[in-house]
Structure formats: structure tokens, C-alpha cells
Design a protein around this nucleic acid. Structure first.
Lengths: 343, 343
DNA sequence: TTGAAAGCGCTAACAT
DNA sequence: ATGTTAGCGCTTTCAA
């Protein structure tokens, strides 16, 4: 109750227990330099017996090397980012690097705080979602002295490297496909998230491409909160009551699209004849619906992998590679809700 | 190209720029001790102008205090853990603590590695999923000298604190509800994951409760990989072809249950009259299906919140509170697939 | 192959 | 209210 009952073990303890200098113990534990097999075993045994866990805080301070990579994303509840993370994880799996995740809830101020907090641990790299950041955030990224990869979007100028798709172009491609299939009366549904810049870019690309074909969106609606599937249902019903002439519904994400799809099936609507549908993201989870929703893959896993690889290559011994830009190309999957031939 | 072109800033730089001692700069930046408003401003201005970001590695080493909490979970791709995380995040939101997430993919050896890695950063607390760990993992947890909360399960003996539900009991409760509603010919479908101990405990609780009523599971099947919704569909079809007399299907998770539900609806099966269905998890995402699947909430968010609160209270100035056990009680939601009255 | 000394950037503890 | 000194636990560098 008086003296430290549980002082954490240090190299010194292992050194004492094994009769080997701290320095040599350190070498053994890091597999650095030449150590005789005999002392090696002595040290390893002592460390194991004591249950010694090295202190990376001290190690990092002394060596000026940190194996942490900051990963900053807007959300986890959203199917998309976990998949990016899993791509990152896979690439770092057999490297010394370790991702540390921070979540911003799509709030620029929170992004700023989270980044500051993470930079204070002097990570070896930063992977951050999006290209739009506060002035201060951009300044911190630029001054961080560590490779930065902005992901998920390539419509803009990165601080350093970037990996993603063009959401403008994704929206435009979908618009072209819809037009090509002969649909003309188009409605749009999305989330009420002014801060989701990527969704907005998609929408802009979409409307611009329609405009070029002389088509305008005839109805639109935005939701926030609640279960996406249920919202998709409700919004679809409401929109079709309001605008019964629509022949195509473009949803900003697959989940609300699926809700709409389920409702339309129940109503006995002919899909994709009477009404066509498309979502966005290529959510694998939805394979197994009565019909496959048309969608466009956001290349989430590939984005994560590519970003992690960039950090890896710019962190290696040689290091200092150039800033890179990788633009992935999403492909449309037509599913059963976007017909392939004109009527 | 020769001299450090980008030496990270230190307190010393801020000290020099502001003409205030390092110690006082440190005090200002941490809001500790009395500092005159005048010097305070000088320091803050200098720090901001330089773009100084404190080095927490050095800070942590010097103060022997780390505001990191290790959170170790099996998976992110699975709807359930992100929700636990978000509960944890919320509680830590306005505290100095910061969660750091590690993923084990349900592999005990990976759990061991991840824990070791995280303990080497000397976190202020550990939140780890499950009660079953390797010998070495338990030893590390016990010796960590930091509060440990094992979450999601309370069927077993914790190293320190635990928060969760009894999966045995959850399985048993569902069995009782099914029996009470008059179903007698029961099939089970789940994931082929011997390492998901919680799913297994649910299954055991389920079969034991059935056995007490003299009922045995008449068919069972397990899947791995692929889209859960699609698998639920396929397995359900296969099982009913094999065992056409079944009148109830219990699924180990909501997603495969939803797949089964969709298929049965398409087949025009009378639900819950001819066949009843239930899943597990209370996945909010599924609100919006044509029918609401009966399920049982795993209290994911609450578990995360409670665990974070335990860490918080045991980390506070007073600290050292006792180990705690919190058993949450999941409730059945009957939805539209588990009838409320006997035929 | 092994060891000794110095110091990473910060904060605790003690002056003043 | 501010400054000084020592040292956190490790690694780097240099010496033996």
C-alpha cells in the first residue's frame, strides 16, 4: 500500500535477471547487431519469465521512430470506411507499421482536433479521407514532415499524395448510363449532409451530365437520421406520389436504394421497365436482395490498400519517394434495375 | 539536402520564440499551474505562429501518463463492433482518454500479438472483447497494471472487470419464447466460426433450453464467407428442401435471417404462421425490410458506454475502484416473424 | 561480441 | 509567477 506494488518492468530488470547489460538486452529484443546465441537465449528466457513488455514510448523517443500511421475517417457506422480500413490493415499486416484510427463525424473542427492529437504522437504517416479540410488542418498536414495520403476523392488538389475515384465523374458516368438506357424522368434521393463533399460532387457530376443531354432532375429529396433502408422506402413512396411520372430513381447510397427497391417490388412496379434504380457504393452486403440494385463500386478496399502502400514505400529506408496521385476507375454494375437495352 | 531540412519543433523553439522558459511554456500548453495572462498570451501566440504540436511521446515518458485506451475487437466488418466503438467514443469524447483500436480477426494468436503491441504503449486501460483468451494473453492482461474490461460476454470469469450479456441466457430465452409460441420443429443456421465463442454459447443455451422442453433441433447448417444475406437465402432453401417439416428457423445473426426471410416471402410462405424466424443482434440496418425479423438486442452501444465508464472511473484521480461486473439484459423483439399467440 | 555514456523532449519536484 | 535540475526508459554512438 506504500511502495509501488506494481512498478512496470524495464530493460534494467531484464538486464539484472539475465546478467547481461541493458544495451545487449535491447539488442536481443530488437534483433539488432550481433549477439551470441548463448546470451541471446539468456535474455529471451529472462524476458519471458518476467513477462517483460518493452516500452515503446521510451523507444520511440530515443530512436525518433514511431511505427504508427494516423488514419482519419468521417465515420465507422457507414459500411464504406470499415472496408477501407481493412484494406489498410492488410497491407500493414506484415510490416512494422500500425494504423491508429480517428473518427471525425464529418465535422471539420473535429477533424482538426483529431489530427492535432494524432500528430502529437509523431506518426510515420497520415491517411485522411477527403480533400476538403480547414485551413489549419491543411497547414498541419503540410508541416507534419510525414507522408500524407488523402483518400476517397481525386477531385481537387492534395497536400501531398492522393488515392481515390473522381466522384464527379462517377456521377456523370451513371447519368450517361441512365440516359443511354432511355430513361428521361429522373428523381434523386440522398442524405442531408452538406459536409459529405463526395456525395455532393457525385450529385454535381450527375446533374451536369444530365444537363448536357438536356435533361433536368425532376424531383429530389434528402433525409437525415434513422434507418437508411426504412428511409429509402418512405422517401420513394413519397416521391412517387408527388411525381408519378418519374421513370428513374438515383440514390446517393445503396442502402436507401435497397429500401426503395423493396418497396417498389411490393407495389408490383415493373423494374427496370417502368422504373429504373441505381445506388452508389457497391455494398456487398446487399447481394441477396430479391433483385440486384444497379450501383457503382467506390473501390474502397483498393483505396485503402493503395494508400497504405504509398505510406509504406515512402517510409522505407530509401524513403522520400515523390508525392503520388492514383485515380481508380469505378465500374457500373447494372444489376437488375438498370436495363441494358432501349425499349 | 544536408542539414535537417524539417526538424520537428520542440518546446525549446517555442521558449526561444516567446522568451519564456521551457517549463513555463509547458505549463501554458497544459493549462497547469499559475501563469500570468501576459506570458500566457506570449506563449500561445508563439506556439501558434510556429505551428508547434507538442510531442506526447516525450510527455508520456516524462509524466508516466498515457491517455490511450486499448480497444481490442475481433472484427470491423461485422455490424456489431463499430457500434460498440461508437459507444466507447461517445463516453471518451470529453475526457482526456483516447481509444486505440486493434483487430484480431477472431484469432487468438493475433489477439496476443495485438495486445502485446498495445501494451508496449502503456495504455491507461484495456477494453477487450470476450472472456476466452490464450494463457499468455490472460497473463499479460493481469500483469498490465492497468484496468481491464472484458466485454460482450458475461458467461465466465473475467481477469478484472466485465460488461456484457449472457449469451447462454440469450439463447435460452429465445428458445423459451419459441416454445411458448408453440413451435416444435426447429432448425438452426449459423456461421462456421468455431472461434466465435459467443455464437457458440448462444447455441448451447438455445439447445439446452429446448432439451428441457423435450425438443431437439431437427436440422442445422453452418456457412462461411460470402454475403450473409445471400447465404441466408441459400441455406434456408436448402434446409427446407431437406427438412420440409420445420416450423421455426433460428439464425445466429440477423443478416442471414434477413436473407432467409426474403426468400420465404418470395416463396409465399406464411410467416409466422407456417414458419417462424428469429435472428440475433438487433441490427438497426434491417428496419425497412418487408417484415421485421424477430431478434434479440446485444446491447452493443450500452456495452461500449459502460466499459468506457469503468475505465474512466478507475483512471480518475481517486482511481483504483474495484473490479466491476455489469450484466446487461437483452430483450426480445418479436417483430413480425415470431407469433405472439398459440394457434 | 559486448559495454558505457549521452541524450531523445518533455514534466515532476523543488527552488526562488 | 517563473525558473532550475534531474530523470522518465530506451537507443545511438562510440569505445573496448
Amino acid at each position: 500500500m506504500s511502495d509501488n506494488p506494481h512498478r512496470p518492468l524495464t530493460l534494467r530488470d531484464v538486464s539484472a535477471a539475465s546478467g547481461v547489460s541493458e544495451m545487449t538486452v535491447s539488442r536481443v529484443l530488437r534483433n539488432r547487431g550481433d549477439v551470441s546465441e548463448a546470451t541471446r537465449q539468456k535474455v529471451l528466457t529472462a524476458a519471458r519469465d518476467l513477462g517483460y513488455v518493452p516500452n515503446k514510448i521510451a523507444g520511440a523517443l530515443a530512436s525518433q521512430r514511431v511505427n504508427l500511421v494516423a488514419v482519419i475517417i468521417p465515420s465507422l457506422s457507414n459500411m464504406v470506411f470499415p472496408e477501407v480500413l481493412s484494406g489498410i490493415n492488410d497491407v500493414f499486416e506484415d510490416s512494422p507499421l500500425q494504423p491508429v484510427v480517428g473518427v471525425t463525424d464529418y465535422q471539420p473542427e473535429k477533424e482538426e482536433r483529431v489530427l492535432y492529437e494524432m500528430l502529437s504522437w509523431r506518426p510515420s504517416g497520415v491517411i485522411i479521407a477527403g480533400l476538403e479540410h480547414s485551413e489549419a488542418t491543411r497547414a498541419m498536414l503540410a508541416a507534419s514532415g510525414t507522408p500524407v495520403v488523402e483518400i476517397m476523392d481525386t477531385d481537387g488538389k492534395p497536400v501531398d499524395s492522393m488515392v481515390g475515384i473522381s466522384h464527379r465523374r462517377a456521377g456523370a458516368e451513371m447519368a450517361k448510363a441512365i440516359i443511354k438506357e432511355g430513361y428521361e424522368h429522373i428523381g434523386f434521393m440522398g442524405t442531408k449532409m452538406p459536409l459529405d463533399r463526395r456525395a455532393r460532387k457525385r450529385f454535381e457530376g450527375f446533374t451536369e451530365a444530365l444537363a448536357k443531354a438536356g435533361i433536368e432532375i425532376e424531383d429530389r429529396d434528402f433525409y437525415s437520421g434513422g434507418s437508411a433502408l426504412a428511409k429509402g422506402r418512405e422517401m420513394t413512396q413519397a416521391m412517387l406520389e408527388r411525381s408519378p411520372d418519374l421513370d428513374f430513381l438515383y440514390y446517393s447510397n445503396d442502402l436507401i436504394g435497397a429500401g426503395g427497391l423493396l418497396w417498389l417490388i411490393e407495389q408490383g412496379v415493373d423494374i427496370p421497365g417502368q422504373i429504373g434504380l441505381a445506388g452508389f457504393n457497391g455494398v456487398e452486403l446487399l447481394q441477396g436482395l430479391p433483385r440486384q440494385l444497379a450501383t457503382m463500386d467506390a473501390c474502397r478496399r483498393e483505396v485503402g490498400e493503395a494508400a497504405a502502400k504509398i505510406i509504406l514505400e515512402r517510409t522505407g529506408e530509401d524513403s522520400s519517394g515523390e508525392a503520388r496521385t492514383i485515380t481508380l476507375t469505378p465500374t457500373i454494375s447494372f444489376g437488375d434495375t438498370l436495363r441494358r437495352h432501349r425499349r
